[in-house]
């Protein structure tokens, strides 16, 4: 188990748990990022300090600091 921000681009993982504030967790979950969801790190964009994720067929960006709050199981 590891933090999402440590994953290399291209790797897939299963979301285990979400940390952070209540509103932040709610927002992620409502976008389909629920525990058990499979996600993929598409790329890291260092200029903007963000990660691009693929979840349920759509592309989302999260800040690296916020990605650290997500625990994932790489697979």
């Amino acid at each position: 188990m590891t933090n999402l921000d440590t994953l290399a681009p291209g790797s897939r993982a299963r979301l285990v748990s979400l940390g952070g504030e209540r509103a932040f967790r709610c927002r992620l979950m409502e976008l389909g990022l629920l525990p058990g969801t499979i996600l993929r790190v598409v790329r890291r964009v260092d200029v903007g300090g963000v990660l691009e994720l693929e979840v349920r067929g759509c592309r989302l960006t999260v800040r690296r600091g916020e990605a650290r709050l997500l625990l994932v199981e790489p697979n």
């Binding site: 952070g20 504030e21 509103a23 932040f24 927002r27 992620l28 976008l31 963000v50 691009e52 759509c58 592309r59 989302l60 960006t61 999260v62 800040r63 916020e66």
Partner: peptide, 12 residues
């Protein structure tokens, strides 16, 4: 204001 996380959708 309240801190807003960046959860940006990248549309095709």
């Amino acid at each position: 204001g309240p801190k807003v996380p960046l959860l940006l959708e990248l549309p095709p």
